[in-house]
């Protein structure tokens, strides 16, 4: 448990350093008048056209969905993989053969998902 407390200390340390740096920058930084030209978002020196909250492609969202599937899948595989050597050596009550078949089914379902997405053209970036 104490390890996780140390980790949270590190978390706050990281946040603190960034916050402290920002505040120091705000305090020490050189200042000029806030003119409209200075505050305008950069657009190659032209006057800014419209708002930056533009519409973007739905493709990004689909990639995110695929990522979600595969990441969670990897998370599910972790406990099995951790004990894979022992299961295969027969040190656990589980039967090595059944575990292997289960794993194969799991992976095949995933891969067919990927193949489906591929065929549907989700992976194509136009």
């Amino acid at each position: 448990m104490s390890e996780y407390i140390i980790l949270s200390i590190f978390l706050f340390l990281g946040a603190f350093i960034a916050a402290a740096a920002t505040v120091t920058g705000l305090l020490l930084g050189y200042r000029t008048k806030n003119t409209a030209n200075k505050m305008a978002p950069y657009e190659c020196g032209m006057e800014t056209i419209g708002n930056a909250r533009i519409q973007f492609k739905v493709g990004y969202y689909l990639f995110a969905l695929l990522f979600l599937v595969f990441d969670i899948e990897a998370l599910f595989l972790f406990p099995v993989m951790m004990n894979f050597r022992e299961i295969m050596a027969g040190h656990t009550p589980l039967s090595p053969m059944i575990v292997l078949i289960d794993l194969a089914i799991f992976i095949v379902i995933l891969v067919s998902g990927l193949a489906y997405a591929w065929k549907k053209g989700i992976l194509k970036w136009e």
């Binding site: 120091t24 920058g25 020490l28 930084g29 050189y30 806030n34 200075k38 505050m39 305008a40 978002p41």
Partner: peptide, 9 residues
């Protein structure tokens, strides 16, 4: 550290 920090409009 001595550069100006500001957020764009």
């Amino acid at each position: 550290l001595f550069k100006e920090v500001y957020a764009p409009s």
